[in-house]
Write a protein that binds this DNA or RNA. Structure first.
Lengths: 228, 228
DNA sequence: CGTCACGTTGACGGGAGTCAAAAGTTGTGG
DNA sequence: CCACAACTTTTGACTCCCGTCAACGTGACG
């Protein structure tokens, strides 16, 4: 369980401190498609992704699903606040086989009180999330679906991309369906499919069953910058 | 300067503690239209609104302005993190004569380290903001302009509304232009104007130079819930 | 009273959501 | 090994919301 030491939030803590925190956490794993938790369940746990990837999904009453984030190892998800809210506002599902640490919200808050420097790092993280959420909330309305798909692919490439060996360009190894992508940018599977077809035809990207690859980053960036 | 005691973030602190924090803050005021700070300026201060209202505006490269929030007294705005970022990502302007406390980001972080319970409250606040941002980011794309205007008016009524004496219904006393409202929901002044005309014709709302009033909350909620 | 910012209304066009159908994939069971 | 079912993807046709451009009205302030 010395995974804790790898997590940026806990950097700089002593062995003993990490041990003390570790005692309050449990390590769990999920298979692809499983839910770490579902919307509506009592929100009293916090999770730290250790390995794998998970998607954070919000459903609106109209049945529209939006994917608000895809988390990489090291990121937090779950309930930070002890508010008297009904339950989790979202569902978190494993996109691949995933391992994560779980801690009770109340216990985590005790940790934050005990180690204020950790609290500050968490605060920085959440603040950054809020900032990026706000910055692309504005872009959403004023750009086309093609631009939003392009932006999302560039973002995913930065976060999950690897310089592949078998494939040219930057490889994004995630099992993303058209519906997933649509949920990320607020669109429909059909519209996303049209855009992806066009991007593939232009040689900017290629995609297969469980992967997407950016072949020509400049071309993709140009499409995002232009208004087509 | 015993305004500090009124601010929820600092609830429960002793006189001496408040005094210590107070020493690191300065009280300032702005006239309507003035900027507390502008996008791009070095981001090294944090503000707590004491009286008045301010709007938080983000500009995209395409010249589109989006109003990401309108702050009431007690709310925080500015730089929480000491990141090596270029500067403020947004502009904050006073909508009416406004008074606010200012503190250096570094000094505020020291306060948070010193009083972890305050840090937790700030964290709760930012987390809640992130949550609401995400929840209506999804609604944005899947709803019409009329629905979004309605939702925004209901939100503003909850936050700033007063049961007026002269006017029927809930009064929102803010100098909001059509362009402001458009910026909040990601639309255009023309579209907002059309919606407001319709809502006025239907008797749901009324609006004047520096105010908006919700005459029939149920009717407005019905419009938001429906798909027209 | 003139100017200017803001608000309103109309006409037009395009992007994209919706409905529908066909083609490709995966996984299962006989 | 093959066949069938279920799902995903793709493509087409249609409709409509709303962003854009434009003209006009209105209230505020010097």
């Amino acid at each position: 369980m010395r995974i804790l030491a790898q997590i940026p939030f806990f950097a700089g803590l002593s062995e003993d401190d990490l041990d003390s925190i570790d005692k309050r956490m449990v390590s769990l794993s999920w298979a692809e498609g499983d839910h770490l938790y579902s919307a509506g369940e009592p929100a009293d746990h916090l999770y730290v992704v250790a390995a794998g990837q998970v998607k954070v999904v919000r459903s609106t009453r109209s049945g529209q699903d939006t994917i608000v984030d895809v988390l990489a190892p090291g990121e937090l998800v779950g309930s930070l606040s002890i508010g008297r809210q009904a339950g989790y506002p979202e569902t978190v599902a494993a996109m691949v086989t995933t391992c994560a640490l779980r801690i009770e919200t109340t216990a985590f808050r005790e940790v934050l009180l005990e180690y204020p420097s950790v609290a500050l790092r968490v605060l920085d993280d959440v603040t950054a999330l809020l900032g990026s959420e706000r910055s692309d909330a504005g872009q959403h309305t004023s750009s086309t679906v093609a631009q939003r798909v392009g932006m999302m692919l560039l973002h995913l490439a930065d976060k999950f991309g690897r310089n592949g060996e078998d494939v040219d360009g930057v490889l994004i190894q995630l099992p993303l369906t058209r519906a997933d992508l649509a949920g990320m940018i607020g669109s429909t599977p059909e519209s996303v499919s049209r855009v992806m077809s066009r991007l593939r035809k232009e040689g900017a990207v290629d995609s297969g069953r469980r992967w997407t690859s950016i072949l020509d980053r400049d071309k993709l960036a140009a499409i995002v910058a232009s208004n087509k």
